[in-house]
Amino acid sequence: MNNYSLKLDKVTKIFGRRLIFNEIDFEFYPGKIYGLAGQNGSGKSTLSKIISGIISPTKGKVNHMLDNKIIPSEKLHDIIGFVSPYLVLYDEFTAEENLVHFAKIRGAVYNETQADKLFGDFNLFDRKNDLLKTYSSGMKQRMKYLFALLHNPYLLLLDEPTSNLDKAGKDKVYEIIRDESKSKCIIIASNESSDLELCGEIIQIENYK
């Protein structure tokens, strides 16, 4: 288990005049699955984007800590694996080319062995050299897990983790989430009761209005 932790300190988000959520205080640790629940438009995805560093909170702080030291914002992409409907991969590249480009842009070395293992885990090995535009929506969703897991992150942030997946795909994802939760901190933002059943603790976003 690593010494990673995530602390939300009075995190508030306001879009224009609309308050999305107010003063969320919470701490997340590895070895546990956390849920972000709430109705459509309650701010689950917004909170996920704030945690990932893509957008900033209106007030409050999000501190990603490793060995009690704050991880600088420009390093966040190295420690977070993010699956989200808003993260789109490049259709004009093959699945493997996408991963190679992302690894290099991150400044990491592309680990082919690890990638091949993940391609195998998600039943995409035979299609790894096909252009992403030939993939179905379910296959693209599975590809997002490779994108999220390849750099072995400390935090796995899963926004709508099972959208577009069939029964077999969902079962595989649940198996991997359970497996990864032994060493990582996992946050699931979802409305699906089957997704939230995995969580040990759930934050109801509506309670922070």
Binding site: H77, I80, Y86, L87, V88, D91, F102, I105, R106
Partner: peptide, 20 residues
């Protein structure tokens, strides 16, 4: 237009994106 802006925002720092 391809919807990949957020992916870039996530994986790269602003200076990397601007320089690239």
């Amino acid at each position: 237009e391809r919807g990949t802006t957020m992916t870039l925002q996530f994986i790269a720092s602003p200076s990397t994106v601007f320089n690239g």
